[in-house]
Each structure stands twice: as structure tokens, then as C-alpha cells.
Write a protein that binds this DNA or RNA. Structure first.
Length: 304
DNA sequence: TATATAGGCGTAGTTACCTCA
DNA sequence: CCTGAGGTAACTACGCCTATA
């Protein structure tokens, strides 16, 4: 199945091309709006075994990466968890319920409100990468993901914009983050992607509207010109008499006679159809025209 | 088999913190 | 140094789906 996977704005929005006029795919990132929360999971095992392996994919020039990372990490890397957390991850303590901190929120807090408060404190403290004594107050410190962490997360997001628990754990371990942090990052990333996609779509529709307005204006003008011509006597002088067409009663195809006196003989057209008389149709150029076939988004392609 | 419930995960919206001009 | 704007990690509330009793 071709799911228009949205990667960094992966616009599956096929804008006009001269070849596929009518093919407007305003793909609103279906992958972002899963019909079911559980349908987005992709096959596991997407991540390189080591961060270095993955980073080497992202940054073929590993030396430049290291330099970049070094320069960036000159400051304090608040995201580096205390070793205890790594141990915790190693031991898989968080795996049974990777959403310990998420249990703080929403419905889960109602349902799982019996969480151990101490655990939560530890969770909070470790998530901030600071010691307990520094985190006496309940205010949340804003942590910043390092550049390489973000790069890895981005890379994984390109692969799959949702993670199954296994992938989440693996990635968290790889990055030295808590699964909850990875989860939140993916949530926020999806939200950002969707927001940008919405902006792009909005811009696109705005252009559609402008083009349609322009097309409408042009057609109105054309109508006016034709009306003016109709009123002009000279126009009648130049006009041919109303065209006489003959419609074949069998296939209902309309034939234009070579000259006015000889309409198409339906018998020569369809030997078998002899009982029905051809219908003559007088074309009135000023009669309301047949409905114009709908050309969706034709106005998107302004005539050059 | 139908139903209630719990749990997991998703999104939308918001808050709080950090960075930078 | 102060400040406002923008970016983003984290949180809250709620809906949907699935497994299970």
C-alpha cells in the first residue's frame, strides 16, 4: 500500500504539472492520521545496532559529525541521563510500562492514579538530568536534546513516524533517554509535521482560489464579448445559416452534412436501422450550451 | 455472543522553559 | 541586563481500539 509517508513535510501534494492536470492529490498525510492507533506499527528492527552505525548513515563524514557534536556538546548536555538511568534501562525496568511519566497525565492518571509517588519523583529528577537536591521544587526544567540525538530521532522519524514499544525502547536505550521522552518527541514531531503540512495545504488552496477567481473573471469577460458580438448586425451577415446536423438514431452520433442539402443518410451509416428517421438538430449558437465538463482545478494551471 | 472495563496509544491543545535577536 | 518572540519538551484531556473477564 502506498501510504504517503510524510517525511519532513513529505508533501504527497502533487502540484500541477502539465501532464496531470486533473490529478490533484491533496494528500493530507494519511499516515499522520491513522485510522487506528494500532495500525501504524511498522516492522521492527529498523534501527542500526549502534548509534555510531546509525549516525554513519546520517553523516557519512563521521569526522565532521564528531566535530559538530563536540562543538555542540561543549556546553552541558542536560540530556545525558545519570548512569543510574542507563542501568535502569539496561535492566528493562521501564519496559513493562514505558509510560510511567505518561501515567501522570490524562485518562491514565485517573486509571493508574496509584502510581508510586517516589518513582515519579525519581522519574522527574532523572528526566531533567539533575540531582534530587537540585530539583527540590516541582517546576519542570526544560531539557534540550543534543544535536546527534535529534538527528537520530529525525532519521528514525523518516523511517516510521510512529514507534512500537520495542522500537521505542531500543531507541531510548540507544539515545540514553527514557522511552517516555522518545514517545513525547515523536508525538511532538508528528504535530509539527502536521502543522507544517496544514500551512502548505492552506497556501495551496489559497492559490487555487486565486486561480479560480482569475479564471472566472476571464470567462465572464469572454461571455460579455460574445454577447456584444451577438448584438452586432455585421456578425449576422458573416454568419452561416444555422447548421443542420443529423443524428443517427442508432448510435446517436451527430453527423455534419457536407452540404446543406444532403444530410447524412443513416441507412448508409447503419444499414440495419431503417425504421427510425434521423433526427435533425438545429444548432443555436446562442442557446445555453451543454454543461461544460467539469475540469477540476483546471484553473490551477493558468494559460501561459 | 454481547457488554463493561482496563489499558495502550493517538491527537489537539496548552504550559513552561530555553534561546536568541 | 531586559524583553518579547519563537521553538520545543512535557503535560493534560479526551477519543478510539483491543483484549479480557
Amino acid at each position: 500500500m502506498m501510504v504517503g509517508k510524510d517525511q519532513d513535510l513529505g508533501l504527497s501534494l502533487s502540484l500541477s504539472s502539465s501532464q496531470n492536470h486533473h490529478l490533484l492529490q491533496l494528500n493530507l498525510s494519511p499516515s499522520l492520521v491513522p485510522s487506528s492507533a494500532n495500525q501504524c506499527y511498522s516492522p521492527s528492527g529498523i534501527f542500526p545496532r549502534t548509534k555510531q552505525a546509525l549516525l554513519s548513515l546520517i553523516y557519512p563524514n563521521t569526522e565532521s559529525l564528531r566535530a559538530e557534536t563536540r562543538s555542540f556538546l561543549k556546553g552541558i548536555d542536560v540530556n545525558r541521563l545519570p548512569s543510574t538511568v542507563d542501568c535502569e534501562e539496561e535492566a528493562g525496568v521501564s519496559s513493562p510500562n514505558s509510560t510511567i511519566s505518561s501515567s501522570l497525565s490524562g485518562k491514565r492518571s485517573e486509571r493508574e492514579g496509584n502510581n508510586n509517588g517516589d518513582e515519579l519523583e525519581i522519574e522527574r529528577a532523572s528526566s531533567h538530568g539533575i540531582s534530587d537536591e537540585e530539583d527540590g521544587d516541582t517546576s519542570r526544567k526544560k531539557l534540550r536534546l543534543s544535536k546527534d540525538q535529534s538527528a537520530i530521532l529525525e532519521e528514525c522519524f523518516k523511517e516510521h513516524n510512529t514507534l512500537n514499544p520495542k522500537q521505542k525502547l531500543a531507541l531510548a536505550k540507544q539515545l540514553g533517554l527514557r522511552p517516555r521522552q522518545v514517545e513525547v518527541w515523536f508525538q511532538n514531531r508528528r504535530a509539527r509535521t502536521k502543522l507544517k503540512q496544514t500551512e502548505v495545504d492552506c497556501e495551496f488552496l489559497k492559490r487555487c482560489c486565486e486561480n479560480l477567481t482569475e479564471e472566472n473573471r476571464r470567462l465572464q469577460k469572454e461571455v460579455q464579448e460574445l454577447r456584444a458580438l451577438k448584438l452586432s448586425p455585421q456578425f449576422y451577415m458573416q454568419m452561416n445559416p444555422p447548421t443542420t446536423l443529423t443524428m443517427c438514431p442508432s448510435c446517436e452520433r451527430v453527423g455534419v452534412p457536407q452540404n446543406a442539402s444532403s444530410a447524412v443518410d443513416p441507412r448508409s451509416h447503419h444499414q440495419l436501422v431503417q425504421s427510425r428517421q434521423p433526427r435533425h438538430i438545429t444548432i443555436n449558437p446562442w442557446a445555453p450550451s451543454a454543461p461544460i465538463p467539469h475540469r477540476p482545478f483546471d484553473a490551477l494551471h493558468p494559460r501561459s
